[in-house]
Design a protein around this nucleic acid. Structure first.
Lengths: 215, 215, 215, 215
DNA sequence: GAATAACCGAGACGGTACGTCGCGTCTTACG
DNA sequence: CGTAAGACGCGACGTACCGTCTCGGTTATTC
């Protein structure tokens, strides 16, 4: 236990204001769209001074990012032993979230904003995209350990191809973003790599989906 | 035909102003980045009244889009008979353009702006992304006609997976955008589809295709 | 005739906005007092953008100064031949204006503001105080020319003593600012200087109150 | 008696904070001018919490007023028997203080602030202006008692005329504020009143300068 | 000599207004 | 009529301070 039994001490930040700001940001985004939301409006709706926002966040985008973080439930990490099926299921869930009008457009706007805000891009990658990517990566690594994927394939690149397909449809809207597309992506991208579709019988896995013996 | 078909030929529009505006827009983008360029600044640098911009373009993004059009040369559409090799080459060229500091970031910014500007999104798709995609699609269709790709595969989805991989790296910067990535993408995505790597000897190509020999 | 027959050319300034701003400034001053008036409030009441105020005036004080200028009627320049009586009458009129709740406090506030705004002080002196002082000075000079005041007295200093007495009561409110005070000031300050109370019989004056022969 | 009578002796108020605040206020005034000094800046420079200032003073002006009190030495009250000479000397000393760049401008600023702060005006009059005026008034009263001034003259008004002349030059800067002006003011204003320049031989005065018999 | 309460520093808070920027529209004079 | 120029109403920016309000920490009585 790193801290003493008393409160953290090191911050008199108001939790109620923080929550009010995130709520206001999210509701305004949903009402008027990210681009038409101003920090002034967020502050006004949250019943908060503008300075309180500027004190804790560097930009409107950063506020919305944090608000979106609270919304996005972590995709459950299915692990049935069949890497193709698992990835299909996971990608379908990601797509379901991104296709949601209450979420996808705002994420798109943040990516748009990140084009001229390197700090936001870093934040977005670190706090949003990489964690989700990491879940997928983990499943792919497991598959590789189990011999379902050849050791030669670059899993980072592989993950980018998979997610790239999704973000393309999110950002450009050039075609439907649905479960069928998820299946297509996995079938197309993974099929060429997967050498053996299913986990070998001899392995046993722990509850967490990670091979018990390897840890 | 000196002017494009989108502007009426009988217009009394000043060509010198149009060029000055596009030049100013591009140079300002390169100096300060798309986001920090304002219509006021473009007008000032171009020595033009603001109204002259508003008269002919709906938004800053539209001006920049037109300016970028002048920059982007059309990728030569290689056709060697080997669909994998051809696609690798084409994608490598697209990537080369997008990795160019004088082009990629501005395209990224336009895609960002398109997130809250449906008209821009349509324009961007129509004038920019789809033409490039169409080149690729055409080559894939040719390959299908030649039996190198099964008739069941959805080529639209396939193209989106391929381009999605590229835009992902352009927009998120999560990994290098280079020729190696182009190769990886094609190898991974196409490999699972391609049934026969090379054009059959017995085939002759239609006149719509671009057989290497006809040029 | 310095300019051509067409309009001044050299200003597209909106007269209606100018008037609206001055009106708004004055009415707000009267409602809430100078100190509680903000440029934002003036702009809002005038139905004008803030920039329009900042474009033409350097500060709130400058706006109010111009507004007050429109209010202050020039004191009629009595000239009866009796310098003491004339000055008493003039000073009484100045005092009447300054004792007016709709005027005096705002002038006081401007003098207050001028304490940390040299440009305003210069403006205030040039456009407000000196013109009024000049009227008094002129009458005193006339009296001197007519031999009612000795040539040795410094009329500038004399005027400052007279006006100083008034501004003291305006700014410090240490005693009533009324006609009796005006009389007292003139009686006390001028009495010691005036050698002969009335204009000599032999002189004739023009309608303007200036001795005809001296010009 | 270490503390003033205005603060309760039993107070646990920190004297060191009080001094630090007054020092900070004064030095900031001299560096940036009264108007650009904020309570925040005073607190920061004094190494003091803002609340400590708000607890003991009602406004920035009040702090500065107290700080200035420490600077202004009381003018010695000359009494030579010659009321004109005495007043000249006293006024010259007042003027010397007000002409001091380290004092006059701040006093001017306080008078300016007092235009919209009645409490400050009262405080300023009570603690600053009236004490000085009282010194002069006392000397004039003595002169009247000694028959040098007629009983009919309103000494309050007379004092305001004299001081008004000084404040006019302090606040409006319309002419030099120097010893010559002091002499001119007294010569002009008092000359008309004084019936006999010097104290009659038959009177005796106590060493305090006040007529022994009247107390 | 511990309890306790006033005062302290620090600084976050809800606000108001600042002065600036850029928007998209409108007006004017010129070619 | 299209143009260069730029004023206009407007909205938002990010900053500065306002005066209030907790927070612990310190200090000087009071029990």
């Amino acid at each position: 236990m790193p801290t003493s039994t008393t409160r953290p001490l090191a911050s008199r930040r108001s939790e109620s204001s923080r929550v009010a700001i995130l709520d206001a940001a999210l509701s305004l985004c949903r009402e008027k769209g990210y681009a038409k939301v101003s920090i002034e409006a967020i502050a006004a709706r949250a019943g908060v001074g503008k300075q309180t926002i500027y004190r804790w966040w560097p930009s409107k985008a950063s506020v919305v990012l944090e608000a979106l973080e609270g919304v996005a439930a972590r995709v459950p990490t299915a692990d049935t032993g069949d890497v193709m099926a698992d990835m299909r299921a996971r990608l379908a869930q990601v797509i379901e979230l991104y296709a949601d009008e209450r979420f996808g457009p705002h994420l798109g706007a943040l990516i748009g904003e990140a084009q001229h805000d390197p700090a936001l891009r870093a934040d977005l990658l670190e706090r949003y995209l990489r964690p989700r990517r990491a879940d997928a990566l983990q499943r792919l690594q497991l598959a590789r350990e189990e011999g379902q994927l050849p050791g030669t394939v670059n899993l980072d690149d592989l993950a980018d191809v998979i997610f790239g397909a999704v973000y393309h449809r999110l950002l450009l809207r050039n075609g439907p973003l649905d479960k069928a597309y998820a299946h297509f992506v996995i079938d197309t991208v993974l099929a060429s790599c997967v050498t053996r579709p299913r986990r070998p019988r001899t392995r046993t896995t722990s509850r967490t989906g990670r091979p018990a013996a390897t840890r």
